[in-house]
Design a protein around this nucleic acid. Structure first.
Length: 216
DNA sequence: GCGACAG
DNA sequence: ATCTTGTCGC
């Protein structure tokens, strides 16, 4: 499988794959939810996937792989920097996740094909994007309490939702990646963040990849 | 044209 | 992402 090496090629790949995104809920509520994240130190990187039981939030599996960067960080082409290592980590898992909770955007992307869409389409696994800041789109004010939401709108499209996961904290930005609808994605994020601003999956994956960077 | 810009 | 101290609060 060829991988783009230039921005123009990467954009062409996104334009080609964007039509494969499925915005529909599939199957029963997920049992195994995976958090994915990548840490960097110069040209080195460590990618981690941590699988948790959705109900108990107990860890059931994890995989951490180290490597080197192969694509620079370019807003809009972020996926090309992280997808290769994340796919390798996913292959190392013993447990196949039912949902991928990605660190970044899904449809809330200039070409409607952010990291979560990319990973979802390539693996066929339902995926959602949870970002700490917005990339595209804007939203009105939302309630102060946990569970409050506001539509994230870009142009004339609702591309995601600003979600308050705890009373008074800054909202996180949730968008559809693949094989899930926005309401369901928001519900999953709230379930995964019972005590902190970020989903437990994201926190575990962040910790895992940072530790993975220290080893090598 | 100018600035903004997931991680 | 990463560079970085102390500090306020449960």
């Amino acid at each position: 499988m060829d991988w783009p090496s230039t921005a123009a090629e990467a954009i062409a790949v996104q334009e080609k794959l964007r039509g494969l995104v499925e915005v529909v809920d599939v199957g029963p509520a997920p049992r195994y939810v995976a958090g994915l994240d990548v840490a960097y130190e110069g040209d080195r990187l460590a990618a981690a996937v941590v699988v948790l039981d959705r109900m108990t939030l107990d860890e059931v599996d994890r995989a951490v792989v180290r490597g080197a960067t192969t694509f620079p960080y370019v807003p809009g082409l972020f996926a090309f920097r992280e997808v290769p290592a994340l796919l390798t980590a996913l292959e190392q898992l013993t447990t196949v996740p039912d949902l991928l909770v990605c660190d970044g955007q899904g449809l809330a992307h200039p070409r409607r094909f952010g990291l979560a869409c990319h990973l979802g389409v390539l693996t066929g696994i339902p995926a959602i994007g949870v970002a700490k800041t917005t990339f595209v789109g804007a939203h009105g004010r939302l309630g102060w309490e946990r569970g409050a939401t506001a539509e994230l709108v870009d142009g004339d499209e609702v591309v995601g939702a600003a979600v308050r996961t705890q009373d008074g904290v800054k909202p996180v930005y949730v968008s559809v990646g693949h094989r899930v609808t926005l309401p369901t994605a928001v519900q999953r994020v709230l379930e995964l963040a019972p005590h902190y601003r970020l989903p437990e999956t994201t926190k575990q994956a962040d910790r895992a990849c940072r530790d993975g960077l220290l080893d090598g």
